[in-house]
Write a protein that binds this DNA or RNA. Structure first.
Length: 222
DNA sequence: CAATAGATCATCT
DNA sequence: GATGATCTATTGC
């Protein structure tokens, strides 16, 4: 599967952030570990973080030392450290020259499961090796060393979704934020056991056509 | 099941 | 000095 997979090209990332976030569902994340070899997973959950009008986004205050890559070249990584303990992996993407990034929240492990299991001893089933943004970076060994790298060459690669049947994509509010908590910018594959938390008890809906964006505005904005 | 506490630090006010 | 795009263990129904 990995042998025939094609890297995502620049045009893929140069679209509205929420469109790219939805389109990443089903794509393959591949990380070359210098010691353990190839680790791979199929993306099953993402969240879009927009520009200054999105108060939940790191880009909201405008460019700073930490978030500057969100304003820079699409198709590169934005890795940050949070809660004194975890790293989060983002993909820079947007249509204009504003800012935007997509948090990779969960993947379905495909290769390197033994390495992931060693690093994620708390996981009791393979579906939970990377079923959350912090779990994923721990399983894949992603750290600050992976910040601001291209996704088009090792050690970080994003490959187009293989021509495989996948379940429908759904949208819901983002998780773990205070501001703009109603914006439906979380995307996940329905009925996939590798999606983080429970998708129940949350208002999720099937994604028809392009994802919602703030300009559409039926949602109550703070 | 659901709710909560604690770990732990880079970043920004 | 407070905050946070989290995870895990533990407690209580």
């Amino acid at each position: 599967m990995l042998a025939n997979a094609v890297p995502l090209e620049r045009a893929f990332y140069e679209r509205p952030t929420e469109v790219v976030a939805a389109a990443l569902i089903g794509a393959l994340l591949v990380v070359e570990d210098p010691v353990q070899g190839t680790l791979a997973g199929r993306i099953v959950e993402t969240e879009a973080y927009l520009d200054q009008k999105d108060r939940a986004s790191h880009a909201a205050p405008g460019p700073t030392a930490r978030n500057i890559v969100m304003f820079a070249e699409p198709g590169r990584s934005y890795v940050y450290f949070i809660y004194g303990m975890y790293h989060c992996l983002n993909v820079v993407a947007r249509a204009d020259r504003a800012a935007g990034a997509i948090l990779i929240r969960a993947v379905e492990p495909l290769a390197g499961l033994e390495t992931m299991a060693e690093r994620r001893s708390a996981a009791t089933r393979w579906q939970d090796l990377a079923s959350g943004p912090g779990k994923l970076t721990r399983a894949f060994g992603i750290s600050a060393a992976h910040h601001d790298l291209s996704f088009s060459e090792p050690p970080l690669r994003l490959l187009a979704a293989p021509d495989m049947p996948g379940n429908p994509v759904m949208a819901s509010p983002r998780i773990g934020i205070r501001h703009c908590a109603d914006w439906p910018l979380r995307f996940f594959e329905s009925n996939n056991p590798c999606v983080s938390r429970s998708m129940l008890n949350r208002t999720a809906h099937l994604l028809h056509g392009v994802p919602w964006s703030p300009e559409d505005t039926p949602i109550v904005r703070p």
